[in-house]
Design a protein around this nucleic acid. Structure first.
Lengths: 198, 198
DNA sequence: CGACGGCTTGATAAGCGTCAACTGAGGTGG
DNA sequence: CCACCTCAGTTGACGCTTATCAAGCCGTCG
C-alpha cells in the first residue's frame, strides 16, 4: 500500500491546515517541519532524516508544514489505509503510541532549550543532537554535513541568522569547531557536550 | 485498579528520572509539570487541571518532574497494570495514541511561543489558553483564578518573574485586564485574543 | 561577467534580564 | 493585640544578550 515519491529541494510535502492525506517515512534527504505565524515568523519544529516519520497522526489535517531541505525520497501511505491498517494491529498501535510519547519527550527537551538556554548552549545542543542522529544513521566522522541554511537553524533554535553565525564564529575562535562549507567539523566534542548538558 | 490520592500544595507527585510507577488523572487541584537544568533553571512544561493525565507513557522513568500547585486530588493507577490493561484493548491504545498526538501538537504550539513570540504575546496567549481550559471545566466568568505563582508563569513562558509582572501591569494600564488577588479579570478579551492569534 | 543567494561582520538599539528596594498580606509569637 | 518576619509581587535603575539594520564577501549560475 506504500509508494515512493521524490521531492526536489524546497518542494512542499505538507501544508499546515490542509487535509493530511499522506503519512511519510523519509528514505533519503532531509525535511524541515515548521509552523508559521500570521506575520511570517517561523518556528522550525524539527528536521526529519532518513528513518523518521511525518504526519503520523490520526487527525485529518496537518498541524504543521513541511518541505524538503535537500532532494528527498519518501515512502508514502495514504492516511486512510494507514489508519485502517493500524486499527487492525494492536501491537502496531502500541508502537505508535510509544513513538508519539518519545516525540513528546523530545518536544519537551526543545521547550527547555527555547525557554531557558543561551544562544551558545542552543547551538552546542543543536550540534550534539545532529551528531547523535547522524551517528545512528552510520555517519561517524566528526564533520557534520549541515544541509539546512542558517535561517533554518535560527528558526529551529529561536534565534536570528546573525546570532547563529556569530555563535559559530565564537565556537570556531575557541577552537571548538571549524566551520566548513555546508557543515561544521567538531574539534572538541567535549566542549559541545558541556554546552548541551542538562 | 485505581486508587485516590491527595497531595498538599508543593508535594511532589513525580520526579524526573525516578521510576515512573504511577499514572495519574487529576480530580481536583492543579499540578505543575517541569524540567530542571543542572544549574537550577526550570522550564515549566504545563499545568495539569482536573481531567488531565500525567505519566501516560509506556516508558519506565518519568521524563519530567511534577508537584502540586494547590492541594490536589488524583486518581492513580500502578503503571504496570495500566500497561497490561492497555495492551489488551486495541481501542484504548488508539485513544492513547490520539491523546499523545494531541499533546505533541500542543507542545509544538508552545515551541512557537517560546521561540518566536514577544513577552506581551506570551502573556496574552497564556491568559487565553487558561480561559479556554477553565471554560471547558465549566468556569465561565471572565475572572481567571491563577493559583500558580508568578515564578511558575515565568518559567512556563520562558520569561522572568519581573517581566511577567511588568507585562501584567502594562495590560492593566491599557485596561485590557485587571490584576486581582490570586488572578486576573479580563476586560477586553478581544485584545488578548489578538495577542494570542497565530 | 554580473546577479543573486547565503553567510559573515560591524554598528547600534531594543527587549528583556539582573539587582535592589519597597509594598502588602498572612502568619507567628511574645 | 500588635510587632515582627516572611514571602509573593511590584517597581525602578541599569546593563547584557540578542535583535535589527546595513554593508560587504564569496561561490554559483545564468
Amino acid at each position: 500500500m506504500s509508494r515512493g515519491m521524490r521531492f526536489a529541494a524546497r518542494e512542499v510535502l505538507a501544508s499546515q491546515g490542509s487535509p493530511g492525506d499522506g503519512v511519510f517515512t523519509i528514505t533519503e534527504g532531509m525535511v524541515r517541519i515548521y509552523r508559521l505565524l500570521a506575520d511570517g515568523r517561523r518556528q522550525v519544529l524539527g528536521f526529519a532524516l532518513p528513518g523518521d516519520f511525518l504526519g503520523l497522526s490520526l487527525f485529518d489535517v496537518y498541524s504543521f508544514s513541511a518541505d524538503a531541505v535537500t532532494d528527498t525520497v519518501v515512502c508514502s501511505f495514504p492516511r486512510k489505509s494507514f489508519v485502517a491498517y493500524a486499527d487492525q494491529r494492536p501491537h502496531l498501535m502500541g508502537r505508535l503510541y510509544e513513538f508519539a510519547s518519545h516525540e513528546l519527550s523530545l518536544a519537551q527537551d526543545q521547550m527547555v532549550l527555547l525557554g531557558r538556554r543561551t544562544a551558545e548552549e542552543r547551538v552546542g545542543t543543536f550540534l550534539i543532537m545532529m551528531r547523535d542522529r547522524l551517528r545512528r544513521l552510520g555517519h561517524t566522522s566528526p564533520t557534520l554535513p549541515l544541509s539546512m541554511t542558517r535561517q533554518d537553524i535560527a528558526d529551529y533554535l529561536g534565534l536570528t541568522i546573525e546570532t547563529v553565525s556569530r555563535t559559530f564564529t565564537k565556537l570556531a575562535n575557541a577552537k571548538t569547531i571549524v566551520v566548513v562549507p555546508d557543515g561544521v567539523r567538531m574539534l572538541r566534542e567535549r566542549d559541545l557536550e558541556r554546552l548541551a548538558a542538562g
